[in-house]
């Protein structure tokens, strides 16, 4: 079947088979930052933003995404300028193997849109669906806090 999705601002008209999951279609289209570590919705590696909300794209059929707008990690930076969450992840060296990072970063972006000043506990709650085996989460939580600070600072500058 054909579905229409917007990925990172680009309108796409793609062929997907009936049982195909969204993660498979996205990876096939070349969005390789979308990771597939379990196919049961438990690792969070396949997280993308679907109309702004983080979803596990492995437990969603591509057909269900018809008509929606999707952001993958490839679509986060603007003209080579990193998003504050990306900057913060880089600065505090939050990624180790980096396999969880695409999902983590997107989940954090969604959190900070909704809650620009989260507590450490709120950050931990938001990230609970994204498993990281390397880091013990300390630097990831730190990165999200730092990103929040940066974004508030910038919003202040603009005001």
């Amino acid at each position: 079947m054909r579905i229409r999705i917007t990925v990172n601002g680009r309108d796409l008209d793609v062929e997907a088979s009936a049982g195909e999951t969204l993660v498979e279609v996205l990876r096939r289209l070349g969005f390789k930052s979308v990771k597939d570590g379990c196919y049961t919705g438990t690792c969070g590696g396949c997280t993308v933003l679907l109309d702004g909300r983080p979803v596990a794209s492995c437990i969603m059929l591509a057909a269900q995404a018809d008509g929606s707008s999707i952001t993958t990690l490839e679509g986060l930076a603007r003209d080579g300028r990193l998003h504050p969450v990306q900057e913060a992840f880089l600065e505090v060296n939050a990624p180790q193997c980096g396999f969880c990072s695409p999902g983590m970063i997107l989940t954090a972006v969604a959190l900070l849109r909704r809650n620009p000043d989260p507590t450490r506990e709120e950050i931990r709650e938001a990230l609970a669906g994204n498993t990281c085996r390397c880091s013990g989460y300390v630097k990831i939580v730190e990165a999200v806090s730092l990103a929040a600070e940066k974004m508030r600072g910038r919003a202040g500058d603009e005001a």
Binding site: F31, K32, I105
Partner: peptide, 11 residues
């Protein structure tokens, strides 16, 4: 780090 946060790292 940069390739990871940009989603460009290749596994």
């Amino acid at each position: 780090g940069r390739s990871i946060v940009l989603g460009e790292a290749r596994y």
